[in-house]
Amino acid sequence: MTQFIIRRLLQSIPTLIGASIIIFLIFAMAPGDYVTSQLQNPKMTEERAAQLRALYGLDKPLPQRYISWASGVLKGDLGDSLLFKKPVIQVINDFIWNSFILGVAIMFFEWLIASIVGIYSAVRQYSVFDTIATLLVFILYSLPSFFLGLVMLKVFAVDLKWFPLGGMITTGSNYTGWAHIVDVAKHMVLPVATLTLISVGGLSRYFRANMLEVIKQDYIRTARAKGLKERTVIFKHALRNALLPLITLFTLELPSLFAGAMITERIFNWPGIGKVVLEGIYIRDYPLFLGYTMLITVLTILANILADVLYGVADPRVRLK
């Protein structure tokens, strides 16, 4: 096991280098740069644009730019964000934790609800519950997230006034400790509910499909034949096996805890990393974007190693080689 992890970590070094080159190239080759995005300023002159490019190092050849960026990264320096005019690490740190707490809450509810709905749908396949759940899942899945977000805001924030209209803290408040936590939690309810509802559908389908597959197996029939209670059969024998393939899905979702949800963050005015990075792309703030992408890449690679390890632990038949 340890050997496996060490080998995988070693393997990830070339992967990371490869990924960083590709990511860097893609971004560097995308048309326009930070200076072009400023060209709407009617006073911008060619000379000034050239001067700015030189200041930002955008005038150097690509390999040189990559090396200076990559050596900075190795030293833990991701450069300065052009948009925020401060170190990228600081920008990411300002926003990523806001996305993270949102992500954790969503993931928790998503898996909780999806497992319940999925398992129940599978046990009662083609029942009324199953049909209604299926339809609901696809209704939610077929509408863009901003619609659900807008409905939530309209109903619960504007009309009923139960929850605040977006944001993360009460404007002008100086809460600390418990009061602060309650304040943030209050602001989290609507975005968490929206994203949970949207993402729960797909996951519950995986639960349902895997459960259906497992229930039909002979060992379940055997378990039933042995006279075990239905509850024991489902939860003890069937569920554990049905969960196996979902380990991959779960670990793949882990990096996205840090990735932020662009549209929802915008609608709910949540100060998350998603919308910051989106803006960074549009105005070609390449240090910010590269820094963020590399962070997610590292997390993804780690999550994949974790996925394989967990899979080996959960299913002893799989040998880690």
Partner: peptide, 13 residues
């Protein structure tokens, strides 16, 4: 900070 989606609603509430 407000957004286009809810700026009017912010005034409203």
């Amino acid at each position: 900070t407000t957004t286009e989606e809810t700026a009017v609603q912010m005034l409203q509430t």
